[in-house]
Protein backbone atom coordinates (compact mmCIF):
# COMPACT_ATOMS: atom_id res chain seq x y z
CA UNK A 1 0.00 0.00 0.00
CA UNK A 2 1.23 3.49 -0.91
CA UNK A 3 2.46 5.89 1.70
CA UNK A 4 0.38 9.03 2.05
CA UNK A 5 2.55 12.10 2.01
CA UNK A 6 1.19 15.66 1.81
CA UNK A 7 3.31 18.74 2.36
CA UNK A 8 1.96 21.31 4.80
CA UNK A 9 0.51 24.62 3.61
CA UNK A 10 -0.64 27.88 5.24
CA UNK A 11 -3.98 26.24 6.02
CA UNK A 12 -3.35 22.50 5.99
CA UNK A 13 -1.07 20.24 8.00
CA UNK A 14 1.84 18.09 6.89
CA UNK A 15 0.66 14.50 6.54
CA UNK A 16 2.74 11.34 6.61
CA UNK A 17 0.84 8.05 6.84
CA UNK A 18 3.19 5.09 6.57
CA UNK A 19 1.63 1.65 6.26
CA UNK A 20 5.10 0.05 6.48
CA UNK A 21 5.88 1.36 9.96
CA UNK A 22 2.29 1.81 11.13
CA UNK A 23 3.07 5.43 12.06
CA UNK A 24 0.58 8.10 11.02
CA UNK A 25 1.54 11.72 11.56
CA UNK A 26 -0.30 15.05 11.22
CA UNK A 27 1.68 18.21 11.94
CA UNK A 28 1.03 21.95 11.76
CA UNK A 29 -2.14 23.99 11.44
CA UNK A 30 -5.40 22.74 10.06
CA UNK A 31 -7.74 25.58 9.09
CA UNK A 32 -9.06 24.85 5.59
CA UNK A 33 -12.41 26.36 4.54
CA UNK A 34 -13.63 22.99 3.44
CA UNK A 35 -12.04 20.44 5.69
CA UNK A 36 -13.88 17.47 4.16
CA UNK A 37 -12.09 18.08 0.90
CA UNK A 38 -8.74 17.90 2.69
CA UNK A 39 -9.50 15.05 5.08
CA UNK A 40 -11.36 12.69 2.73
CA UNK A 41 -8.15 11.23 1.19
CA UNK A 42 -6.80 10.70 4.74
CA UNK A 43 -9.97 8.91 5.80
CA UNK A 44 -9.94 6.80 2.62
CA UNK A 45 -6.31 5.89 3.26
CA UNK A 46 -7.10 4.79 6.83
CA UNK A 47 -9.99 2.66 5.56
CA UNK A 48 -7.67 0.90 3.16
CA UNK A 49 -4.97 0.59 5.80
CA UNK A 50 -7.56 -1.09 8.03
CA UNK A 51 -7.63 -4.12 5.73
CA UNK A 52 -4.18 -5.21 6.95
CA UNK A 53 -2.99 -2.82 9.67
CA UNK A 54 0.16 -3.12 11.76
CA UNK A 55 -0.43 -4.81 15.12
CA UNK A 56 0.90 -1.67 16.78
CA UNK A 57 -0.35 1.45 15.03
CA UNK A 58 0.78 4.83 16.27
CA UNK A 59 -0.85 8.14 15.45
CA UNK A 60 1.15 11.30 16.14
CA UNK A 61 -1.00 14.40 16.27
CA UNK A 62 1.20 17.48 16.39
CA UNK A 63 -1.21 20.31 15.72
CA UNK A 64 -0.50 23.97 16.27
CA UNK A 65 -4.17 24.88 16.03
CA UNK A 66 -7.20 23.78 14.08
CA UNK A 67 -10.61 25.13 13.13
CA UNK A 68 -13.92 23.60 14.20
CA UNK A 69 -14.50 22.31 10.71
CA UNK A 70 -11.31 20.22 11.03
CA UNK A 71 -12.28 19.08 14.52
CA UNK A 72 -15.17 17.09 13.08
CA UNK A 73 -12.93 15.50 10.44
CA UNK A 74 -10.32 14.61 13.04
CA UNK A 75 -13.08 12.87 14.98
CA UNK A 76 -14.06 10.95 11.82
CA UNK A 77 -10.45 9.89 11.41
CA UNK A 78 -10.34 8.63 15.01
CA UNK A 79 -13.64 6.80 14.52
CA UNK A 80 -12.14 4.88 11.57
CA UNK A 81 -9.10 4.06 13.67
CA UNK A 82 -11.40 2.91 16.47
CA UNK A 83 -12.77 0.25 14.12
CA UNK A 84 -9.28 -0.97 13.29
CA UNK A 85 -8.48 -1.03 16.99
CA UNK A 86 -11.47 -3.28 17.61
CA UNK A 87 -10.05 -5.89 15.24
CA UNK A 88 -7.31 -6.94 17.65
CA UNK A 89 -4.91 -4.25 16.58
CA UNK A 90 -3.66 -1.68 19.06
CA UNK A 91 -4.01 1.90 17.90
CA UNK A 92 -2.38 4.46 20.11
CA UNK A 93 -2.85 8.22 19.75
CA UNK A 94 -0.02 10.50 20.80
CA UNK A 95 -1.57 13.93 21.14
CA UNK A 96 1.11 16.60 21.41
CA UNK A 97 0.77 20.10 22.78
CA UNK A 98 3.30 22.87 23.21
CA UNK A 99 4.23 23.87 26.76
CA UNK A 100 1.63 26.39 28.05
CA UNK A 101 -0.83 25.58 25.27
CA UNK A 102 -3.61 24.43 27.56
CA UNK A 103 -6.18 24.76 24.74
CA UNK A 104 -4.42 22.08 22.69
CA UNK A 105 -4.04 19.95 25.80
CA UNK A 106 -7.78 20.32 26.42
CA UNK A 107 -8.54 19.50 22.80
CA UNK A 108 -6.71 16.21 23.33
CA UNK A 109 -8.78 15.59 26.44
CA UNK A 110 -11.95 16.34 24.45
CA UNK A 111 -11.11 13.56 22.00
CA UNK A 112 -9.91 11.18 24.70
CA UNK A 113 -13.32 11.62 26.37
CA UNK A 114 -15.36 10.70 23.32
CA UNK A 115 -13.13 8.29 21.40
CA UNK A 116 -12.48 4.72 22.53
CA UNK A 117 -8.76 4.75 21.85
CA UNK A 118 -5.69 4.86 24.03
CA UNK A 119 -4.62 8.52 24.27
CA UNK A 120 -1.25 9.67 25.37
CA UNK A 121 -1.23 13.46 25.86
CA UNK A 122 2.34 14.68 25.56
CA UNK A 123 3.84 18.07 26.34
CA UNK A 124 6.70 19.22 24.11
CA UNK A 125 8.70 22.44 23.79
CA UNK A 126 7.80 23.20 20.22
CA UNK A 127 5.73 21.61 17.50
Amino acid sequence: MEKLHIEGSAKTPFVSFDSGSGILELRGRSIPENSIEFFQPLIDWVDEYGVSPKAATQVDMKLEYFNTSSSKCILDLFKRLEKINDNGVQVKINWYFETDDEDMEEAGEDYAAIVGLDFNIVEIDEI
Binding site: E37, T68, S69, S71, K72, D110, A113
Partner: peptide, 17 residues
Protein backbone atom coordinates in the same frame (compact mmCIF):
# COMPACT_ATOMS: atom_id res chain seq x y z
CA UNK B 1 -17.90 17.47 23.11
CA UNK B 2 -21.58 16.65 22.78
CA UNK B 3 -21.94 18.70 19.57
CA UNK B 4 -18.71 17.31 18.18
CA UNK B 5 -19.99 13.79 18.65
CA UNK B 6 -23.56 14.29 17.46
CA UNK B 7 -23.68 17.07 14.90
CA UNK B 8 -22.95 16.15 11.36
CA UNK B 9 -20.86 18.31 9.08
CA UNK B 10 -22.77 20.29 6.49
CA UNK B 11 -21.81 20.14 2.82
CA UNK B 12 -19.83 23.32 3.32
CA UNK B 13 -17.77 21.66 6.00
CA UNK B 14 -19.16 23.68 8.90
CA UNK B 15 -19.75 21.79 12.08
CA UNK B 16 -21.95 24.24 14.00
CA UNK B 17 -19.23 24.45 16.62
Amino acid sequence: QQRLLHNSVSKKGTAGL
